[in-house]
Design a protein around this nucleic acid. Structure first.
Length: 436
RNA sequence: GGCCCCGUCGUCCAGAGGCCUAGGACGCUGGGUUUUCAACCCAGAAACGCCGGUUCGAAUCCGGUCGGGGCUGCCA
């Protein structure tokens, strides 16, 4: 069994193509089959090397690997169609000689009979039937002698020995053309499978007008490969038993193209986000710390200083508990960086009070005189003074939170103060105490 | 317009004639926990597009209809 995916490098790896790749890959892996990746760049106008690179890198990022094809090689050359124009031209000439194609205005068209029909079995849709009278004579070679997708793709599928073609439903109506071509070249027919399309929230084919639909854009948004992989599995398929979060090995074990739904699915970011949060929480401590630092450095476009790292490491765990994407980290830890500290004035107005002021004054004094500024002591002092002044937690803690972190929303207060350290905490409290 | 595909909660998925007064998840609403935000727990609202047929019995099979989508390029 040999499957393939043949992306066109006319854009970054699209979510829809990634899902098609994923299903092909899952099926190949679950059946001990081969998986091939080739580059269908017959559209020389729009194909760009940077897109090819983006496609390859993001496939790899998702954990989709291949046994033959672009980059990994194989016995068929570069696996880039632009390097095989001679081969396609040769096939077109062969068809011309056999009288199965003809020239028109310099282009070569495949002659489709007026009568008859093409039948085939689609793995997810069942039996398909197309009337030849509905199929136009289609172009094989353009006037400039470059091959079209129909020709190149079909020849490659034959030459590379593809036994199962699973692609998007948008190509379903082109399949009879490909079958006609294969028949006229005396090639054995592969199995066909047309996966439903992914839709945007408006119910239309997912495309650029739905915003960023590239895999890399989700990576840039702080989505984990494991979460995106898992989420995409669920678009048109499920492993059964209402199982939704699972590892790739289980997906490989359970996956079957025959179980894939024929109806389109809407790509719903909300569930992806939720799932990403679930995955983030599962990351082991050390690995998360690495991602944590990477993500912060990325968003501030510089390396972290030693003192910043010291502070940040104290707050890794609480942050891991409360983010949905890696990009949410920065918002949570901003107050710990060596950057100008600012207090959200709206939040401040909201929490400032006489009682709160008294409370801050008190804990500041205690902080100054305390020997050890550990998490335990901080909590002890803050709770004790709350009782001393008979102040509700909300009144005392929220004003302190804004004074120390700048906003009403932050990681847990004691941890935040502990991470900030004694000196800075005392200084920030002083700045917010009106009658020092 | 023509050809083709599709049709279960807002969304994703379960359901392959009786187990369905339709199940799970996201989201949403309410509540609990709580120093904020999350996380977590509990509860709730929410769907078989419609009409016929087959059958003792249909979300499940068939037909029609309506609705959505794709293709209709010398793009892929």
């Amino acid at each position: 069994m040999k499957l393939r995916i043949a992306p066109s490098p006319t854009g970054n790896l699209h979510i829809g193509n990634a899902r098609t790749a994923l299903f092909n890959w899952l099926y190949a892996r679950s059946n001990d089959g081969q998986f091939l990746v080739r580059i269908d760049d017959t559209d020389t106008e729009r194909s760009l090397p940077e897109y090819e690179e983006n496609i390859i890198n993001n496939l790899k990022w998702l954990g989709i690997d291949w046994d033959e094809g672009i980059e990994v090689g194989g016995k068929e050359g570069t696996y880039r169609q632009s390097d095989r124009f001679e081969r396609y031209t040769q096939v077109a000439e062969e068809l011309l000689e056999k009288g199965l194609a003809y020239e028109e205005d310099g282009a070569v068209r495949f002659k489709v009979e007026d009568k008859g029909e093409i039948k085939f079995h689609d793995k997810v849709r069942g039996s398909m039937k197309f009337d030849l009278s509905d199929i136009e004579d289609f172009v094989l070679l353009r006037s400039d002698k470059s091959p079209t997708y129909h020709l190149a793709s079909t020849v490659d599928d034959i030459d590379y020995g593809i036994t199962l073609i699973a692609r998007g439903e948008d190509i379903l109506s082109s399949t009879p053309k490909h079958i006609l071509l294969m028949n006229s070249l005396d090639a054995p027919l592969p199995e066909f499978c047309h996966l439903s399309l992914l839709f945007g929230p408006d119910g239309k084919k997912l495309s650029k007008r739905h915003g960023d639909t590239s895999v890399s854009s989700y990576k840039d948004k702080g989505i984990l490969a494991s979460a995106l992989f898992n989420y995409m599995c669920l678009l048109g398929w499920s492993p059964g038993n209402d199982l939704e979060i699972f590892e790739r090995d289980l997906a490989i074990e359970k996956f079957d193209l025959n179980d894939v739904l024929p109806n389109p699915a809407i790509f719903d970011t909300k569930k992806l986000l939720w799932m990403n949060g679930q995955y983030i929480r599962e990351i082991v401590k050390d690995d998360f710390e690495t991602l944590f630092v990477e993500s912060i450095e990325n968003s501030i476009s510089r390396e972290l200083f030693e003192d910043e790292l010291d502070r940040l490491k104290k707050i890794v765990q609480p942050v891991q508990e409360r983010i949905e994407t890696l990009n949410d980290i920065n918002e949570q830890i901003k107050f710990l960086l060596d950057e100008p500290f600012e207090i959200d004035q709206n939040d401040w107005k909201n929490v400032n009070s006489l009682e709160g002021q008294k409370y801050m004054k008190k804990i500041r004094e205690r902080f100054i005189s305390t020997e050890s500024f550990e998490l335990k002591n901080i909590e002890e002092i803050m709770r004790f003074e709350l009782e001393e002044l008979s102040i509700k937690p909300k009144i005392g803690f929220q004003i302190t939170r804004v004074a120390v972190t700048g906003t009403k929303i932050s990681p847990p207060l004691f941890e935040s103060i502990f991470a900030l350290g004694k000196e800075t905490t005392i200084a920030r409290l002083a700045e917010s105490i009106e009658d020092l």
